[in-house]
Write a protein that binds this DNA or RNA. Structure first.
Length: 271
DNA sequence: ATGGTGGTTAGACCA
């Protein structure tokens, strides 16, 4: 068995439109497991063959027409654990698998948290209310995982930048959905409840800036560098001592017709 | 500064 396990998470913003970019990334980086969000792809037309040809023949995915959708692609066998209906909605925002055998098995949970709309007021904006309810459900889920499955990894586009240095300007974004105190507090509560290790922040502590997303609306995204860290990989209490390294593939944001998110990869020591 | 850009899909809806 391999001595390490590498897991990538990437909001691809249409897996069919960007299949060539995903395949390029897989060829270059060869993570063991790739978790995607916003596949925007119904299951019957998911590009299973393209991933299998690239060496990722073990697949779990759930999608819908036009919106949302998550997938887990693996180079080695996985056991599907199914998809949760978060907030009682069948909207394809979670899927999970188990990888590895016996006592060394690891659960991987891939989430796509609602973006939350533009107005940071749950009374005025149902999308923001949905986001807050989703993160509260994530907190409850975290409690269960902490107790029952300490060897868990939670990844995804969580659409919240929890820390001051997870955004280009803390003060200018305090009223902007993704960095409001009610969201960042809710996310911190979920992390605490699960005793999750925020892996990229252990590897690169504040005050160093970390971003995984740059808006399409920024005319010169690289020069302006007004990013946010919306994508995350959390390690359960049974895995936090196995953290090896992390990588943020910022250069993919400069590819032709890119996703607005970039892939982030965490490597774990394996036992 | 209340725009700006992009994907899905054919007029909005979502990010």
């Amino acid at each position: 068995m391999a001595k390490t396990l590498s897991i990538t998470t990437w909001n691809i913003n249409s897996v069919r439109l960007r299949i060539d970019q995903v395949l390029r990334f897989l060829a270059e980086d060869q993570p063991d497991v790739l978790c995607l969000q916003e596949t925007k792809c119904p299951d019957p037309v998911f590009p299973t063959g393209a991933f299998a040809n690239a060496g990722y023949g073990h697949q779990a995915f759930i999608g819908m027409k036009g919106y949302n959708g998550v997938a887990i692609l693996s180079r080695e066998p996985i056991r599907p654990l199914g998809a949760r209906e978060m907030c009682a909605k069948p909207d394809a925002r979670h899927i999970a698998v188990e990888i590895g055998e016996g006592a060394s098995a690891i659960q991987i949970h891939n989430f796509y948290v609602p973006a939350g709309g533009d107005i940071a007021d749950p009374e005025a904006n149902p999308k923001f209310a949905h986001k807050l309810a989703f993160v509260e459900e994530l907190r409850q889920f975290s409690e269960g995982q902490r107790k029952a499955v300490p060897r868990s990894v939670l990844v995804g586009d969580l659409n919240i930048a929890p820390l001051e240095h997870d955004v280009w300007s803390h003060k200018q974004l305090l009223d902007v959905v993704s960095h409001t105190p009610v969201e960042t507090d809710a996310m911190k509560a979920a992390i605490a409840e699960g005793e999750w290790c925020d892996a990229f922040r252990v590897l690169t502590p504040e005050p160093q800036k970390l971003y995984s997303w740059w808006s399409y609306r920024s005319p010169d995204w690289a020069a302006a560098d007004k990013g946010r860290r919306l994508d995350h990989i959390w390690l359960g209490r049974g895995l936090k001592d196995q953290l090896v390294s992390g990588a943020i593939r910022k250069e993919t944001r400069g590819w032709e017709r890119p996703s607005d998110h970039v892939p982030i990869t965490l490597t774990l020591e394996r036992d």
